[in-house]
Amino acid sequence: MATADFPTVYTALRGLLAPYADQLVVKHDDEGHYYLDTRHTRPNGEPLFFAATQVKRTYVSFYLMPVYVFPELLDTLSADLRKRMQGKSCFNFKQLESNLLEELAGLVGRGYTRYQEAGYI
């Protein structure tokens, strides 16, 4: 897929995070970079990261910290979405498939709920 399609991928991934912006802190909202923190402060004084998406040179990254904090959120992850994982909380996309976008949206929602239950939101 050509790099020219990355803005479309980014817009779709950003759309998964935008509904949560009112309850979180938007740290970056630039062309190609959207980043959300919680208002919860970690012991080091820094805010607890929630999620972000960013256009890179060869893919669009989607970071979701709740899956790092609560790895059991990944227990029901499909093999197709798992193939997109890079590290413990990052998913890389060159193109989007509607089923993966839907699954990722559910994962974001479950992650948000877990953060709420833990008192992070």
Results as ranks from 00 to 15, higher is better:
K56W: 08
G45Y: 08
F70G: 00
V69C: 01
E31W: 01
H33R: 12
M65F: 09
G32D: 06
S78R: 10
G32P: 05
Y34R: 05
L73W: 03
P47A: 07
M65D: 06
V60H: 09
V60F: 03
R42T: 13
D29G: 06
G45K: 06
H33P: 00
E31Y: 00
L77V: 12
Y34Q: 05
S61K: 10
L74H: 01
T76H: 14
H40G: 00
T53I: 12
K56P: 00
P43I: 06
E46F: 12
T41V: 15
D29H: 09
P71I: 11
D30A: 14
T76Q: 15
F49N: 04
A51Y: 03
L73D: 03
G32V: 09
T38Q: 02
V60N: 01
P71T: 09
G45H: 04
A51R: 02
P47L: 07
H28D: 14
Y63Q: 06
S78F: 10
Y35Q: 05
T76W: 05
L48R: 12
L48V: 11
V55H: 01
S61D: 09
R42F: 00
A51K: 03
E46Y: 13
T38L: 02
Y63E: 03
P66D: 09
D37L: 09
P47H: 04
H33W: 14
A79Q: 12
K27F: 09
R57V: 13
P43L: 00
D75T: 13
D29L: 03
F50E: 03
D30F: 13
M65W: 05
Y68I: 00
P71R: 10
V60K: 02
V67H: 03
G32I: 08
Y35T: 13
L77N: 05
L73G: 07
R39A: 12
E31G: 04
P43G: 01
L73I: 05
Y35M: 08
R57G: 10
F49W: 10
L48N: 03
P71D: 01
D30N: 09
L73F: 04
V69S: 02
Q54L: 12
E31H: 08
V67M: 00
P43Q: 07
V69D: 05
T41R: 14
A51G: 14
L64S: 13
F50Q: 06
L36S: 03
V69H: 10
Y35N: 12
E31V: 11
